[in-house]
Amino acid sequence: MSDVEPWAMRWQIRGDRAACHEVIDLVQSALTNADLGDTVAFAVRLALEEALANAVRHGHIGDESRTIEVFAEISSCSVRLEVADEGTGFDPSSVPDPTADENLTIASGRGLSLIRAFMTDVKVVPPGNRIVMNYIP
């Protein structure tokens, strides 16, 4: 890993595909500049994609005109992401475990589970419309 200046940015975006991709691309570029490696890049991209998708699909019930707040902070030793939507939130303990035998063939409900698996530390902030994700290589 190289020792580069920490990079941080905050966005308020519409929850549409173009705006989400613009943020994802900027974060990917910052990850490349920080030289954190492919494993980190994969984990962070997956987490950000899933968090944004959850914000639009569940937080905003598919309404792409509503605003999503995104924060990203990347240094040579850590990555921090925050995604907040305008929805009413949810209780993460109410999400069925997608890895339970009885849920393996259900087609949805794996986003949060993947985020938790690939990021080091994940917190859903009450009332559940903000997710904070940290990756520490």
Binding site: E49, E50, A107, S108, G111, S113, L114
Partner: peptide, 17 residues
């Protein structure tokens, strides 16, 4: 394929079924 999301997994489960 280099990246895959949970929605893509859902598509595969539906296809398999």
């Amino acid at each position: 394929v280099e990246h895959l999301s949970s929605s893509a997994l859902g598509m595969l489960i539906t296809l398999n079924s």
